[in-house]
Write a protein that binds this DNA or RNA. Structure first.
Length: 960
RNA sequence: GCCCGGGUGGCGGAAUUGGUAGACGCGCCAGACUCAAAAUCUGGUUCUCGCAAGAGAGUGGGGGUUCGAUUCCCCCCCCGGGCACCA
């Protein structure tokens, strides 16, 4: 009997489906374990071998936990709303609902092929009205809530109205408009319109006019994390700043809690750092300078933000952002023209230009600021290096301590004050905080770190400044001018947004024929008369809305009373293991963490961090292959015609690297008709162009020349130039993509080698978190392993398994495997676990071990990795029951035999004697000091044992 | 520029966290079976010298701590990722 993986996999997948073996109950006495994958966008391209990497890892972990007796929630769904789905629909001319449905079916089929243990009965789709009903509901919760900074949590907006009615907003300054102050009396006197406008400035999801990232090509605004280097993350289209009415998520109120929460979760350091960089918390002080208005006695206040108030005596100039409101007021008549020119210049520069070429530029305003302590007059400049959107849009410049200020001072010849003595060398700023201040009045002699506190206290008592914390993170744009997203359950009336009643949810997305933008930058929904007649909001929610809470819906997917029952969320609680790529570091992961905190604040769930542990799988890259097209054009007078495409082998190209004349001579010498021509004079064009070639036409690095000729009529007459009769392709590791012809489809691999081989091979490729190129060749080794495993049961074609007692050698290898695989699986170090399986099967084969008592535990151990073949073999062994369904709490221990092993024991490497240990001791305490004390100590005459080392599982070395 | 990772055979990668470096797999070489091929099996495979036994070198480079360093410390080089006028 051969290892017939196709039959086996078909048979078991059918059985698993029929028996709903993976369906999970919310009622169980078992401990729970929630293993989650980041759900995919169902794009039209389908899955390539890179996508399942994380799914396989989570699948192994989920199966492992299930075998250990956990009730495991391991669901899958689809992030079906959002820009890409709509773009794809536009490209193919079909309705997004149709293409999305089709793509989901294709994805599911591909996933089923691999044999995942997803509980499909819990599938969610963000574009399903039964799902987005609750996305809309959560939006309304956000809309109806404000962030109480005193309590550090979200509260219903009604509590805020109560506060306003009794005490105004003195204790709760408006996050949207800091200068807004009113008393309870004033509040009571405000009209409805004014009250609603004020409340809007407190809501966690609010509508406001703001500068947004507008992408003309996509016809929508984008959140900051969707814009990379001034262009859209999707498509790479230009993005410009534009003032628009937008919905926002007031995520800035959660900045501190999002930062603190990182301390309570198990994310990688890199991930935590990316998030805290994005949040960008800094602390310092706002300092108020007075500016003398030119030609008048009035003084205008200018507030700057600095993290280094200690350097306040080193200020040599002030810089405002060119957009700063004060600029037009303070410019002196003499400088007015120059300032206007400069502002115009800055406005003419796009975001991209500004980022690409950072040059020192600026303009003196003619105004002077008064130093709050020394009273010194300080020139006020404007420059584009100061950003309007951060801090107060103005800085105090301290050239001796800040590199940018230093360069600016040098460039414009502004004299530099030195407040750090020798620490400043005169031509380079020194940003150190580890210096004692000089030249700094009441701060002289103080270390900078201490001076910060002294200055802030003095500023606060004198009323010229305040302690201040700033964040780089901005509120997130929450509306899109697109069709394929959740409609906002909002109705507009006289400029006021009114939420729809809950009983109108879901507010379903209407059907449209075209996705043309509506008038004045509105979305396609603005083209629908029935929609606009009701004054419904025409924007839709962004892609991250649905994905911010999907992990909660899996817990209770069919509930139509609430997004998930409290009982279900209390039971499943946090995600124990979340696996996905790093690309969502500052998008999805931050938003879903915030939503979780809000739902927790409002009392709907009992935890405020969604993911207890996060693991980022690496990317599987493609290994591209290249052919080298000889590109030439003969001079018109040459009487030769040659219309075959010519391809030069990589080995030839490499041989003549940096020697083009040599290369061309060689090529010409190999082409009969062209031989004898002179590359120097007979050609008008000559060169070699690398072209991606479909990896399906290449085996290793050798091109299948015939298949290549057949692949494209253009290449039918292709001529190959190489040293041998093989054509060698060049290769490069790149991202896997259609356009690079390097995509490997998991379906092909599965049909050729089977799902178990595919699963094990993806894990064997290398550490989960590392990026690595796909190499189909190496898969043979894993496939061979599974065939060997099969032969362990069927050595001569028929099942040979006996009930004999295992020998010491067999137990030794089994226990080593149990120990290693358990440890590795726990650590998600699947590559080394697979290696151990190979060693185990190799050694058992060598020992000709066909013993049930050894093979059974091996199968259980192997089940999470290769579920199909183990299920088959288990049935052949046992006759009935499913190993997948089995629960073996501490299953490895169950098979721990009462065996003893004898080891040679050496002192400092020299063998002295043999000693016998129980299997149990070896399992857990191989190098334990207990063993050393109890057993070895006596034998080595009381010398102190420094360490015991088991050498290759064959010898124990005692170091004294 | 700043902050994280990382650098080990021809290749992907191991190394019990300071203890025989190179597990396991790919590739390659030799052999067995076969009319032959495939499949399978056995042995070999870090490099240099040597027929061999063996000797020497060896974890990006240089230095240090240690009986002992891929592992710890300092300096430098290279690769991957993230951030980037955030005052």
């Amino acid at each position: 009997m051969e290892y017939a993986f196709r039959e086996i996999e078909e048979k078991w997948q059918k059985r698993w489906k029929e028996e709903r073996i993976y369906q999970v109950s919310n009622d169980s006495d078992k401990p729970k374990c929630y293993v989650l994958d980041m759900f995919p966008y169902p794009s039209g391209a389908g899955l390539h071998v890179g996508h399942p990497l994380g799914y396989i890892a989570s699948d192994i972990y989920a199966r492992y936990k299930r075998l250990q007796g956990f009730n495991v929630l391991h669901p899958m769904g689809f992030d079906a709303f959002g820009l890409p789905a709509e773009q794809y629909a536009i490209e193919t001319g079909q309705h997004p609902a149709v293409t999305t449905e089709k793509n989901i079916e294709a994805f599911k089929k591909q996933m089923d092929n691999i044999g995942f243990c997803f509980d499909w009965s819990r599938e969610v789709r963000t574009s399903d009205p039964r799902y987005y009903r609750w996305t809309q509901w959560i939006f309304l919760e956000l809309f109806h809530s404000w962030y109480n900074r005193e309590a550090s949590k979200a509260e219903p907006i009604s509590t805020l109205v109560n506060i306003f009615e009794t005490q105004g907003n003195q204790a709760h300054p408006c996050p949207g408009e800091a200068s807004l102050r009113f008393s309870s009396g004033e509040w009571l006197a405000f009209g409805e319109n004014k009250r609603q406008k004020i409340l809007m400035n407190y809501r966690l999801c609010y509508c406001g006019i703001g500068e947004v990232n507008w992408c003309e090509a996509l016809g929508t605004v984008l959140a900051n994390d969707e814009v990379v280097n001034g262009v859209s993350e999707r498509g790479g289209y230009p993005v410009v700043k534009k003032k628009l009415r937008q919905w926002y998520l007031r995520i800035t109120e959660y900045a501190d809690r999002l930062l603190e929460g990182l301390g309570t979760v198990d994310f990688s350091e890199a991930m935590k750092e990316m998030q805290s960089n994005w949040i960008g918390r800094s602390s310092g002080a706002d300092i108020e300078f007075k500016i003398k208005k030119p030609g008048s006695a009035d003084a205008l206040p200018l507030t700057v933000y600095t993290t280094r108030p200690d350097t306040v005596f080193g200020v040599d100039f002030m810089v405002l952002a060119p957009e700063h409101a004060l600029v037009s007021e303070i410019k002196s008549p003499g400088q007015a023209a120059a300032v206007e020119d400069y502002v115009a210049y800055v406005q003419s520069r796009s975001e991209r230009e500004r980022i690409a070429e950072k040059k020192i530029s600026g303009c003196f305003t003619g105004a002077y600021a008064i130093h709050p302590f020394s009273g010194k007059q300080i020139p006020v400049w404007i420059s584009e290096y100061v950003l309007a959107g951060y801090g107060t849009g103005a800085i105090m410049a301290v050239p001796c301590g800040d590199e940018r200020d230093h360069k600016f001072a040098r460039h414009f010849n502004i004299p530099i004050t030195n407040i750090i003595g020798d620490a400043y060398n005169g031509h380079e700023a020194n940003p150190s905080k580890d210096v004692r201040l000089q030249n700094s009045d009441f701060l002289n002699g103080l270390p900078m770190a201490e001076a910060i506190e002294v200055v802030i206290r003095k500023l606060e008592t004198e009323g010229t400044g305040l302690r201040k914390v700033n964040y780089k993170m901005r509120d997130a744009a929450f509306s899109r001018q697109r069709y394929w997203g959740e409609p906002f359950p909002i109705r507009w009336e006289e400029g006021i947004a009114y939420p729809l009643n809950e009983d109108r949810l879901p507010l379903e997305l209407p059907y449209v024929e075209t996705y043309k933008p509506g008038p004045e930058g509105e979305g396609p929904l603005a083209n629908i008369p029935e929609w606009t007649a009701q004054h419904l909001e025409t924007n839709t929610m962004p892609g991250y809305a649905g994905s911010s809470w999907y992990f909660l819906r899996y817990m209770d997917p069919g509930n139509d009373q609430v997004f998930a029952s409290r009982k279900a969320t209390d039971y499943w609680n946090q995600v124990d293991m979340y696996i996905g790529g790093t690309e969502h570091a500052v998008g999805h992961l931050l938003y879903s963490r915030m939503w979780t905190k809000v739902l927790s604040d409002l009392g709907y769930i009992g935890f405020d961090e969604p993911y207890k542990k996060l693991v980022n799988q690496g990317m599987i890259q493609g290994s591209s292959r290249f052919v080298y097209a000889f590109n030439f054009k003969l001079q018109p007078e040459i009487p030769v015609t040659f219309d075959h495409p010519v391809f030069v082998s990589f080995d030839v190209c490499r041989k003549y690297e940096n020697d083009d004349p040599g290369l061309f001579k060689f090529i010409l010498s190999r082409i009969g008709e062209l031989s004898g021509l002179d590359p120097e004079k007979d050609f008008s064009t000559i060169g070699v162009i690398p072209l991606h070639v479909d990896i399906g036409l290449v085996s290793g690095n050798e091109l299948d020349k015939e298949a290549f000729r057949r692949s494209n009529p253009k290449y039918a007459g292709a001529v190959f130039v190489s040293e041998t009769d093989q054509y060698i392709c060049g290769s490069e590791v790149e991202k896997m993509s259609k356009s690079k012809y390097n995509v490997v489809n998991p379906d092909d691999i599965v049909s050729r080698y089977g799902a178990d081989t595919f699963r094990m091979y993806e894990m064997f490729l290398g550490p989960l978190e590392q990026s690595k190129p796909w190499d189909t060749k190496g898969i043979e080794g894993v496939h061979r392993f599974l065939k060997k495993l099969w032969r362990l049961f069927f050595p001569d074609g028929s099942l040979v398994v006996n009930d004999d007692a295992p020998t010491e050698g067999e137990l030794r290898i089994l226990h080593k495997t149990i120990k290693k695989v358990k440890e590795d699986t726990e650590k998600l170090s699947f590559n080394t676990a697979v290696s151990q399986f190979m060693i185990c099967v190799n050694e058992l084969t060598a020992l000709k071990c066909h013993k049930k008592k050894v093979l059974e535990p091996l199968l259980i151990l192997l089940t999470p990795y290769a579920p199909h073949v183990t299920e088959e073999l288990w049935h052949l062994l046992k006759g009935a029951g499913s190993v997948l369904n089995a629960s073996y709490p501490g299953y490895a221990e169950k098979y721990l035999q009462e065996a003893t092993f004898t080891y040679p024991v050496a002192i400092n490497g020299k063998t002295r004697t043999e000693m016998t240990f129980s299997a149990d001791a070896l399992q857990t305490d191989m190098e334990a000091e207990v063993l050393a004390d109890n057993v070895v100590q006596k034998w080595i005459d009381g010398k102190q044992v420094k360490k015991m080392i088991v050498v290759k599982g064959r010898m124990i070395n005692v170091v004294v």
